[in-house]
Structures are given as C-alpha cells and as structure tokens.
Design a protein around this nucleic acid. Structure first.
Lengths: 127, 127
DNA sequence: CAGGATCCCTTAGGATACTG
DNA sequence: CAGTATCCTAAGGGATCCTG
C-alpha cells in the first residue's frame, strides 16, 4: 500500500487538483511539453516534432499552456512571421513529475498489455 | 532545464506511452485509484467516496482498470450481491508517480491561477 | 446491491480553406 | 510562417429506467 499519497488532495469537493490534471490529461499537452523540454521551438518545428498533431490542436494546446503560464510565446514582427515557444520555470518544473509517470508507463506497459490480452482471452472463451 | 526526462519515450511513432497515459487522463480514473489507495472498497462505497461520479462512469472506469490489470474484482454470490475492488500490486505501484504529479498540481495551483488571471486581464484590456 | 441498456447532449478533435 | 474560421464526426459522459 502506497501510503495514501494522494488521498486528501483529490477528494476535496472543490477539487483543486482536477482542473490542473484535466489539462495534462488531454491528448497533446504532454507531447508538446516534451517537445519543448530541450529548449525553444517554433510553431513549425513543433509540428514536425509531433507529426500527427493538427495545426488546430497545436495552436489550441499552445494557447492553453500560455494562459496557464507554462510557456511563453514570443512574436517577432518579421516577414514571414516567427513565433518562439519556451517553457517557463513553472512549465519546466512539470517535466520532473511527468517523467515519473512516463517511466511508470514504460515499465508497466508489458504488464498492462498482458492483462489486456488475458481479459481478451476470457471474453473470447466466454462468448 | 529538466534533463529531457521524457524525450524519447513520447516521440516514438508507435507511442508506447500514450495508450497508458490516455487511460489515466480521463476524468475519473485518478479519483478511483485514490479511493482504493487505502484498501478494498465496494461499489457503493466508491460512489460515496466520489460523490459526483455517475454509476455508469464508475462501472466503466472500474471495468477498464480491471482489464488493464490495475485492480481485481471479486464477486460474492450472495443476495444482495457484493463486489469488492482491490488494487493489484501494479495498480498500487501507480500511486507513487501519481502522487508526484498531484503534489506538483497542488504546489503549482496558485501560480497557474495567477497566470490565468493575468491572461484574463490582458484579454479584458484588449477588448 | 451492483450494475446493464438506452437516450441524449456536450466536447474533443480532424480536415479543409483562408489570411496577415 | 503562423495561425484563424468553419464544418463535421466520434467519443465522453450525465440521467433515467430496468434487472438478477
């Protein structure tokens, strides 16, 4: 038993944690944070780094991250325009706990897939 | 800069991490895991522990967690029926990295809300 | 008690086209 | 280049009713 690490945090009626976790729970935020983990990137660089993101979702995700203060957006008034995205210290500080979670996912992947396969077997045998 | 903790993991085309993170990224999984962090619980106990979850979503979330091998479901063939849910060692092992993330959310909450308020100010001033 | 089945609405998100 | 606007579909998820 893991010492109820998260107990009181989540049950709270106002749920101070959920509005934060809801953000990183979407499909792209983690990937964008990751792509920015090595430093400043431009819009198109991010699109190349995350091949299957649509330009719409990339733009939306970046706006949200900017609004939440996790990255800064720097516009250069040149032609053609150029926009740089950089993690703030706050955004950067998220990479560490996120790394814990991702490493768990990597090491647990095999076990999870095995469990899914077992569940599939059971279902197949029953039907 | 946080040492590119998550880099290679996420960019992978087959994205071994996303199918795992997609699960915990939903609205209820984290809350259910938390409610089970202190030990075995029954269906109704979980509903009480997470007041605003619908029975449908609780059932669905529990099924998914069972399929993924994060918890076990034990049915007692009594009348009325009774079903116990317990985290597996795998499920329990998720509580630790999750705790890191939740503590980050708690400590960062003020900064994020301040950033959102600032963004709101900017928008209000512009319009 | 512990759900399954059904209905319905809202949101996430892709595709495409257009612009400063 | 870096987006915004529009349209559209699929999935998430609530409410309600039914049952072994």
């Amino acid at each position: 038993m893991s010492l109820r690490l998260i107990r009181d945090a989540v049950i709270d009626p106002a749920c101070p944690v959920r509005d934060v976790l809801d953000r990183i729970g979407d499909r792209w935020t983690v990937l964008v944070l990751n792509a920015l983990s090595t430093g400043t990137r431009r819009f198109t660089e991010l699109r190349r780094a995350i091949p299957d993101i649509s330009q719409r979702m990339l733009a939306k995700t970046l706006r949200t991250l900017e609004t939440d203060g996790l990255l800064t957006r720097t516009v250069f008034p040149t032609i053609p325009p150029r926009v740089d995205y950089t993690l703030t210290p706050l955004g950067d500080s998220l990479l560490e706990p996120l790394g814990h979670l991702i490493r768990w996912a990597e090491t647990s992947r095999a076990a999870i897939h095995a469990a899914r396969a077992r569940a599939g077997q059971v279902r197949a045998a029953r039907d």
